[in-house]
Design a protein around this nucleic acid. Structure first.
Lengths: 116, 116
DNA sequence: CCTGGACTCCACCGCACGGTTGTACAGTTC
DNA sequence: GAACTGTACAACCGTGCGGTGGAGTCCAGG
């Protein structure tokens, strides 16, 4: 962990990193990953969990799959998806940590008495 | 660290997380953060470092500022920006770690002899 | 005051992307 | 084989966003 990164990030690496972030910058895909965090699931189950159209879910799963974040496997007539890169949850936790810190900072600016 | 997240992520939190990822899903903004990782800098310096137009840099800095990732401070006639949320580097490191794992997996699929 | 420089804001354009619809492709069952 | 289900693909549309150009704001100096 905590690998050393070169100071001027190479241009290509910048693109790769941004691409990966952009994949996660979509609520629907976050919801899909959140559901898959519980257990592997078929497209049907994911469609029900997100209350979206089947085509839309399939499209977003394709993006996640191309990014290597989920793995697909046929199961009879169904297709079962599962998390392929658990680091996405680490990312979400870090983001939530940053959000918490922002909220605390805002609270301290408003004064200690804050539950608005 | 490693705070516990609720299983079905609340819808609003999903939006917040996705928003934050989307801010990072842009090469130019990654470049700006990468430059600020070295030291605080003025818009001028950032413009030179990224080889972009001054308006474009200012616009992206505005996005980063609204997201609470950078802080601005007037310095005479200049405006100096600096990192406000160091967790962004943690995020980048995690992403790079995932990329490394993908590269290794790809390499092992192609066979041990791989430098293309 | 006016001038000039640093920066931000606004209006516009073009493209990429999310969503929908329709269709094609497995795989199972009969 | 035909029929049905589950999933992926392709074409289209609308919007959001990155980039640019120009005007506006703030600050220092003369």
């Amino acid at each position: 962990m905590a690998l050393r990164l070169p100071q001027p990030l190479p241009a290509e690496l910048v693109e790769l990193v941004a691409d990966r972030f952009r994949v996660l910058g979509e609520p629907m895909r976050i919801r899909l990953l959140d559901r898959l965090r519980q257990s592997p699931a078929t497209v049907q189950e994911l469609t029900e969990a997100t209350a979206a159209s089947q085509q839309n879910v399939s499209k977003h799963l394709g993006v996640l799959h191309r990014a290597g974040m989920v793995a697909r496997a046929r199961d009879g007539n169904f297709v079962r998806y599962e998390i392929a890169d658990p680091s996405v949850f680490e990312l979400c936790e870090t983001v939530c940590g940053g959000l918490h810190r922002q909220a605390d900072a805002l609270r301290s600016v408003l004064g200690q008495n804050a539950t608005a």
